[in-house]
């Protein structure tokens, strides 16, 4: 660690952390795909209830999306408002 700029080290690690935070995108992807698939199935079975099914599906997708958005916000904070650089001594 001698001779290494601590700021550069923290910034590099933050970039890796931002990338890792976006792994959270897997969950909503699977969840929304599942919801959309079930929605399509339901429309196929009952085409007359299309409106209700679509709005219910959108609501479920939106709730499933929150975890992914939290990951995105963490990544954004690490990239654009990094709180860790301020902790470096000296």
């Amino acid at each position: 660690m001698e001779g290494m700029d601590p700021r550069a080290f923290v910034l590099g690690c933050s970039a890796i952390g931002a990338g890792l935070a976006m792994i959270a995108g897997i969950g909503p992807g699977i969840g929304q795909g599942f919801a959309a698939g079930k929605g399509a199935e339901a429309v196929g079975r009952q085409p007359e209830a299309r409106g209700t099914i679509t709005s219910t599906m959108l609501l479920g997708c939106a709730v499933a999306e929150s975890t992914g958005i939290y990951g995105l916000v963490v990544a954004m904070i690490l990239l654009f408002a990094n709180p860790l650089v301020g902790k470096i001594q000296g």
Binding site: L11, M76, I77, L79, F80, A81, N82, P83, V85, G86, K87
Partner: peptide, 23 residues
């Protein structure tokens, strides 16, 4: 704004990423 909110909480208020500014 977000940056100032976060920066204010932890006492740090400058932007490390130059070039692409989301604020």
């Amino acid at each position: 704004e977000v940056r100032s909110l976060v920066g204010h909480l932890i006492g740090w208020d400058t932007n490390p990423a130059e070039g692409l500014d989301a604020n």
